[in-house]
């Protein structure tokens, strides 16, 4: 069993999302055979609770559903998945003691629900920033899936803590025309054109006990999640795997040969795989350093020399040049801006 997955690994249970999105789309005028066309999913598969699909089909399905011009789809899908009675993971996070336990559980078993994204958590002042990055190339569906993940968490917090007004959602996408849709569904501050797809959760929420907290049922559902793990083992997306390795190696710069060796692949196989994701190794390494630079800037007052050292640049001039390439501005002017919107 390989430790990473790509587009054609069948690691997504249909009942963990695809079935729900199909039902929503059908009620919005989509025809099942058209929604499924071009995928390897058949109508009979939808009845079988063990059926799985791979990400190529999942992304295609989402693009078919989006042709229905229903911008509320990711919000509703998050709602349906969260409250789905047959998904042990969703049931378990709702009966956890508090948000900390709930998110820990979610992070541990996340490959069962949404393997296409991976979370990163960082503390910024009195908030925790949970940012999401694609674990495999998601193309145009990246916004949809990010909104889905964030919506899932916001809805969980609103259901269990009855308040989401202190949350702050950051989205990479440009301000959409239907901005009020985000505010109406999330009822919290939403900023667009950001460097991350992320949610800022105040520490005060972290240990507030959940409305439906039930330790006994939590254990039961957790057991069910472990059982599912035997059939759906924890695999990470190729990009996630690489980005984590590159990040871990910093300030040393990981070469493509080292990365390929860590994945158990030959250099040319890795290059070929990355080509399928429309990217290359240099671009991924650059992205990791850019994200890290942004995070460090958010977290504290580092000098350019310190930043350059942490990111593995030979001197601060090279770092300044790279930062200008990423953002169009110098690190000093980025620091002067408000903590969240660079």
């Amino acid at each position: 069993m390989t430790t990473h997955f790509s587009f054609t690994d069948k690691n997504l249970l249909l009942r963990h999302g695809p079935t729900a999105v199909l039902q929503l789309a059908q009620r919005r005028g989509g025809q099942l055979h058209k929604l499924l066309s071009g995928t390897s999913i058949f109508e009979q598969d939808l009845m079988n609770p063990q059926s799985r699909c791979h990400h190529r089909d999942w992304l295609k399905l989402l693009s078919h559903c989006q042709q229905l011009q229903s911008p509320e789809l990711p919000f509703l899908l998050a709602d349906s998945v969260l409250n789905h009675r047959n998904i042990a993971l969703c049931q378990s996070i709702a009966v956890a003691a508090n948000l900390a336990q709930s998110l820990k559980q979610l992070c541990y078993f996340r490959h069962q629900l949404l393997p296409a994204l991976y979370p990163k958590i960082k503390r910024i002042d009195n908030k925790l920033m949970l940012s999401f990055k694609p674990a495999i190339a998601l193309g145009v569906q990246q916004h949809f899936i990010s909104i889905l993940a964030i919506s899932f968490l916001v809805k969980l917090i609103r259901q269990q803590l009855a308040d989401s007004s202190q949350l702050h959602v950051l989205l990479k996408q440009a301000t959409p025309a239907n901005e009020q849709l985000f505010k109406a569904h999330w009822q919290c501050q939403v900023s667009f054109n950001q460097q991350f797809d992320a949610i800022l959760i105040p520490l005060a929420y972290w240990h507030q006990s959940f409305a439906d907290s039930n330790p006994h049922r939590f254990q039961q559902y957790r057991q069910a999640c472990y059982q599912l793990n035997q059939r759906l083992p924890a695999q990470r997306g190729l990009l996630e795997h690489l980005q984590r390795q590159i990040d871990r190696a910093l300030p040393r710069q990981l070469g493509i040969e080292d990365a390929a060796a860590l994945l158990g692949l030959s250099c040319s196989s890795l290059k070929r795989l990355l080509q399928q994701h429309n990217t290359n190794f240099a671009a991924i390494a650059d992205e990791v350093r850019r994200d890290k630079a942004h995070l460090l800037l958010l977290q504290g007052n580092y000098s350019n020399r310190q930043l350059a050292e942490q990111l593995g640049y030979s001197d601060e001039h090279n770092f300044r040049r790279a930062f200008k390439r990423w953002t169009g501005m110098l690190p000093s002017s980025a620091k002067a801006l408000t903590p969240i919107s660079f």
């Binding site: 729900a20 039902q23 929503l24 009620r27 509703l76 709602d79 349906s80 809805k155 609103r158 259901q159």
Partner: peptide
């Protein structure tokens, strides 16, 4: 409405 959706499902809400 979200509580209604949660109790009776998205289909009933729609």
């Amino acid at each position: 409405f979200s509580a209604f959706n949660r109790q009776y499902g998205a289909a009933a809400g729609d």
